[in-house]
């Protein structure tokens, strides 16, 4: 057991963990923060997406011990117009992928604002302003939705792009 400290959704947590415990299992099983979901446990679906020091990551492939000292934001710590936009645009059905989609979208918008390119970014810089649907689709492709609420998700993200001051 190793004691680690994380700042989870604004409050400091000190926890003893075994090295084999993933950040996702630490959140879900020990801390009862069940917003981040387990869809594949191998980085293939994005349902476990959380923000670690502001960057989106797959919590299932993160060993909790390696995140000692980090600031972790899960859906439980998000209060943002994007949530209302997801409802308005019907960006979900069953709701299982939704926390991951929302956290991923927030991280993604931050990356876009910071000028980080994607596979569909043309030569030169990332254009200012709102990302195009094509950019959002490519950048969000790490978040699967089997219900197929993709159209609603893209529209919801477009609605709030440019407002992501967290």
């Amino acid at each position: 057991m190793t004691e680690i400290q994380i700042k989870l959704n604004g409050s400091v947590e000190r926890i003893d963990v075994d090295p084999w415990v993933s950040l996702l299992d630490l959140l879900r099983e020990t801390l009862k923060i069940t917003g981040p979901k387990k869809g594949c446990d191998q980085g293939a679906c994005g349902a476990c997406t959380v923000l670690a020091d502001g960057r989106r990551i797959n919590a299932c492939l993160a060993l909790a011990v390696a995140y000692d000292g980090s600031e972790i934001t899960t859906i439980e710590g998000v209060s943002h117009p994007i949530q209302e936009a997801f409802i308005h645009r019907d960006g979900f059905q069953c709701g299982y992928c939704t926390p991951g989609q929302i956290c991923s979208a927030l991280g993604m918008l931050g990356e876009y604002q910071a000028g980080m390119p994607s596979a569909v970014t043309e030569a030169g810089e990332v254009p200012a302003g709102k990302p195009s649907p094509e950019e959002i689709r490519e950048r969000m492709s790490g978040n699967l939705c089997r219900c197929g609420a993709y159209n609603g998700i893209i529209m919801a993200i477009q609605d709030v792009a440019g407002t992501e001051n967290r």
Partner: peptide, 16 residues
Amino acid sequence: LSEALLSGASGQLRNM
């Protein structure tokens, strides 16, 4: 190199 990296995995995985 930039294009190769961006064609791999997902945004989350590339961050890690």
